[in-house]
């Protein structure tokens, strides 16, 4: 554990709390992609199956359980409690375009041909693109509530902080995980456009609006 990873994880936690806060206080999941949230549940469940087989630390176990539970709770909020505020007609990204390639990539790039490793690898690739339906929705509507942009910024910061974490681990432990690093770089790259608008508009007190 190093400060980059620790603050990355904290940022990830913060993003989830911001999202739950947004949905419950506005009593609406408007502007949030159900598909992205469903992908995160898939990511966490497939990756953290090792909860039952390998123990890393109490921190690791508690975080894994939290991520699975909170992501399921968000789906519940969107699908049941605030269902009328969820508009599927603008959440139109085709999931098969994401899931299919991730299955193929996991079969090619993995650390072992067994169910746990294949699912782990699949979850890493899927996480790297899981935000796309959300970003696509943002692009389509051309605007977002400020709270939603804070959610995305915290999520992007979590990914960005994992990069110095890998650099640090390479020098301090000689540890390199090429699958995580490659997928992580792609994932962080997807946020660059968003971050540009977030820094130049939202943090200057303006509304998040994309140029027409």
């Amino acid at each position: 554990m190093n400060i980059f990873r620790f603050f990355g994880d904290l940022s990830h936690l913060a993003s989830i709390f911001i999202l739950i806060h947004k949905i419950t206080t506005t009593r609406s999941c408007r502007g949030i992609s159900f598909k992205t949230q469903a992908l995160y549940v898939t990511v966490f469940v497939t990756r953290y199956l090792d909860l039952f087989t390998s123990y890393v630390s109490l921190y690791n176990t508690v975080m894994k359980i939290f991520f699975i539970a909170s992501s399921c709770y968000i789906l519940y909020l969107m699908r049941v409690r605030y269902r009328p505020t969820n508009d599927p007609s603008i959440d139109t990204f085709r999931l098969e375009y994401l899931v299919g390639p991730c299955v193929v990539l996991a079969l090619i790039f993995n650390y072992g041909y067994n169910p746990t490793e294949l699912l782990w690898s699949f979850s890493i690739f899927l996480e790297s693109v899981a935000i796309l339906p959300q970003l696509f929705m943002l692009q389509r509507t051309g605007e977002a509530e400020t709270i939603t942009t804070h959610y995305l910024a915290a999520l992007g910061a979590y990914r960005a902080l994992y990069i110095p974490n890998w650099i640090y681990r390479y020098f301090s432990e000689g540890y390199v995980d090429p699958i995580s690093v490659t997928a992580g770089l792609v994932q962080t790259g997807l946020y660059l456009d968003f971050f540009y608008v977030y820094f130049t508009k939202v943090l200057q007190g303006q509304k998040f609006e994309l140029p027409a």
Partner: peptide, 10 residues
């Protein structure tokens, strides 16, 4: 044989 990478990250 063993995993070249031990998954300790979240």
């Amino acid at each position: 044989e063993g995993n070249p990478v031990h998954h300790d990250e979240l």
